[in-house]
């Protein structure tokens, strides 16, 4: 499903897109932070600081979404992005998987 941005709520849509991207970057940061922690390369104090900072970011993002009424838009943008990435990855160089899917289609259409 393509990302839904209508002309009449362009500003809202744009803000939604921006927040969606901020969330994705935040998720990447979280992931990295987690890896460092699990890898044992952080001290207790660092873990504490990192955790507090990330939690504050979470709260700030939620706050913005609430204030602007953006939760729906952001979810739809993220879903749209998920679908697109799925699609692109599926279509990329992977003849074997493609062959399999084609075979299934052909059996269906016979």
């Amino acid at each position: 499903m393509p990302i839904d941005i209508h002309e009449d709520n362009l500003k809202h849509g744009l803000l939604g897109l921006v927040i969606a991207l901020v969330e994705i970057i935040r998720d990447a940061l979280k992931h990295q932070a987690l890896r460092r922690m699990e890898g044992g390369s952080l001290t207790d104090e660092e873990v504490e600081r990192l955790g507090s900072a990330l939690e504050e970011i979470d709260i700030a993002i939620d706050h913005i979404k609430e204030e602007q009424g953006l939760s729906e838009t952001v979810n739809s943008v993220r879903d749209g992005l998920d679908d697109i990435v799925d699609d692109v990855l599926d279509q990329m160089v992977n003849p074997e998987r493609w062959a399999r899917e084609m075979k299934e289609e052909e059996n269906k259409n016979g």
């Binding site: 393509p2 990302i3 941005i5 209508h6 849509g13 749209g80 697109i84």
Partner: peptide, 13 residues
């Protein structure tokens, strides 16, 4: 039809 509504990343890709 895959309509173009402002941002359509799939098409760009």
């Amino acid at each position: 039809g895959i309509p173009l509504l402002g941002v359509n990343l799939r098409a760009a890709l």
